[in-house]
Nucleic acid binder design. Structure first.
Lengths: 350, 350
DNA sequence: TCGTTTACCCAAATCGATTTGGTTAAACCA
DNA sequence: TGGTTTAACCAAATCGATTTGGGTAAACGA
């Protein structure tokens, strides 16, 4: 009879192929997956028939049988209350874009899980093999929830105060901070303030420690300000104003969060300070914000594509159970000097 | 015996619950899903037992049986060759963030499919119920591929020259363009150039048509420049330089793509033109780029969150087969006037 | 009292693949 | 020649849920 059905009647199954090829379902499965013992001629014929019919295996059945979903989730650890558009998610979305690419190349689908109040309930509905979480805060509830389901998790950036040590990609926040601080000192800054978020996030914890050691070693004053992550640029600006009020003679601000840094720039400009002549400003995440700021901000290339790829690889290792590594040192961050801290054409003053 | 096993031996199945509760698997299924006829007491007891044991249904089995995956993909129609970091994906990622949220609220997982050369092969490996494609170009191969699999697709922005009409959310690119052009004319511009991409994308096609009608109606010269999407800001700057060379007296540029607009601003500034005094610049997508540009760019609020939510709703309708709607008019775009086209404090010249 | 409805429950079929545990016939070996 | 290996293939079990098609006993109706 007709070997090709093209009415939208029903999806083709392995049984249809078996019948058309005149073999058993087993043989079809073996032939198509290059497994088992099948006569090369038969194998070729089965493949031919399958192609002709346009057969595609039912992924759901495949997955029930093999126990794999071939998909992973990407979570952030943002506070739910964060307001404002999606641009707030700059960092997460940049990782998302590169991680999705890396995942797809490994045959994995990447599911985006934005920070969401309902996410806690919905997290159980997700059929995933593993998850990547970005810069988790201490005691992140999502992590516990996923671990309860036995789902493998890897974090980008160490989880602070972790009771259950998660495998992670080391973002080297301390070193990155030192890179920025050294640069500022080298440029001549002697009153450097640190502006970080108030969450217990490794990048804040580590950079603060690095900062304290740095200032103490140099005999500099220790000026730490904390702002609310949810507040974005406005919170950064406000924190900067307070810094200026209490320490009018500061000559540099290191603000790892790009939104805080841009907010600080605005506040400084409003206060009549010139950047970089009076105050230098540097940030960590080199996103659109840092690049488009006026003046453009000195930042750090974190090599997020590499980090994403490493996170995917690490996660796969752990899912497959043959992963011994629990900490992976990410690529070395590189300083990108821009006008916000650069040596001005001719020295500003003596 | 012990009713709770907590060794990591094996995932609990419905059979375990059935045994523990002393009923059949059928009854457990019915009880937990609030289906069938089950004694309220039994139902409660089964739920109790299931909770106690920590039973969670195997999603893969559930999906094989019910035929749903509860996940959808988000595709862009970008050229693969596009270089540069993820920030190029600003528009896609902004939709991704809002769409993921809207999808999750509907119990759907959103899988990110970045523009990728290998994507064509990998697209068949994705187990999804439907897909959303952003501003598809004419003849997009991904669409054909998914349709071959019988997967429902909805596009954000009409697909131009479509042979198979896709349901879509109308982005009203023509109206949006007119909004910008009217604004420029109102501000006093009389030599308005249009700078668009060279792909066959609805937003370019529609805005170009609107532009031609607009200039013809006003008796203005028709200055259309096209740049390569993959070129980003540099391509926009180059196109702008050519425009300036051939039409030195232009007094406004409408560049719907934000990267082109920012590139144009750079080129204008290098050419010694003041913005907005000499040349006004406006763009469509109100992303970080437009906001952080110096001067900030007049742009349009497209209400992407609403559009994402509408796209998800439309897709669900079509997946469920009860969708009659094929075109949904998105929310009305709103002009956001900023310094790049604003009336300057005191009129620039007489 | 006998048939019928109703409430409650269950065994088995089903979804569509993969995998286990065979069977059959030809090839090989002593 | 009789016994063993090997190649090629297949039927049935399996994954873990949902759904179909009854079955049983109590309640109801005439």
């Amino acid at each position: 009879m007709s070997s090709v059905k093209h009415d939208g009647s029903r999806r083709l199954t392995i049984a249809d192929v078996a019948e058309a090829a005149g073999v058993s379902r087993t043989t079809v499965s073996h032939a198509l997956n290059d497994r088992g013992q099948v006569d090369p001629q038969t194998r070729a014929r089965v493949k031919e028939v399958a192609k002709l019919l346009g057969y595609r295996p039912n992924l759901r059945a495949q997955r029930l049988r093999t126990g794999r979903t071939n998909s992973i989730a990407l979570l952030s650890s943002m506070p739910f209350a964060v307001a404002g558009g999606a641009s707030r998610l700059g960092f997460m979305m940049e990782i998302a874009a590169t991680a999705a690419e890396a995942a797809l190349k490994q045959g994995l689908a990447l599911v985006l899980v934005p920070p969401l109040a309902e996410a806690r309930r919905l997290l159980d509905e997700l059929d995933i093999d593993g998850a990547i979480i970005i810069e988790p805060v201490a005691q992140d509830p999502q992590i516990a929830q996923l671990q309860r389901r036995g789902i493998g998790i890897v974090s980008i950036g160490r989880q602070p105060e972790a009771d259950t040590a998660l495998p992670y990609i080391d973002l080297q926040a301390g070193e990155t901070g030192l890179l920025l601080l050294d640069h500022l000192a080298e440029q001549g800054s002697r009153q450097i303030a640190l502006l970080i978020g108030d969450q217990r996030r490794h990048s804040y914890v580590d950079v603060e420690q690095a900062y304290r050691e740095f200032t103490s070693a140099w005999g500099m004053p220790c000026l730490v300000a904390k702002a609310d992550e949810a507040g974005g640029e406005a919170a950064g600006a406000e924190a900067c104003r307070q810094l200026l009020a209490s320490h009018p003679d500061l000559d540099a601000i290191c603000a790892p969060v790009d939104a805080f840094a841009v907010g600080a720039v605005r506040a400084l400009q409003q206060a009549g300070r010139r950047i970089p002549e009076d105050v230098r400003v540097v940030t960590r995440y080199d996103g659109l914000r840092a690049q488009q700021c006026q003046p453009p901000l000195t930042a750090v290339n974190l090599h997020l594509e590499d980090i994403s790829a490493q996170a995917i690889a690490l996660l796969l290792e752990h899912i497959n159970g043959k992963g011994k590594r629990t900490i992976v040192r990410g690529p070395s961050p590189q300083l990108i000097v821009r006008a916000s801290s650069g040596r001005t054409g001719d020295k500003p003053a003596l």
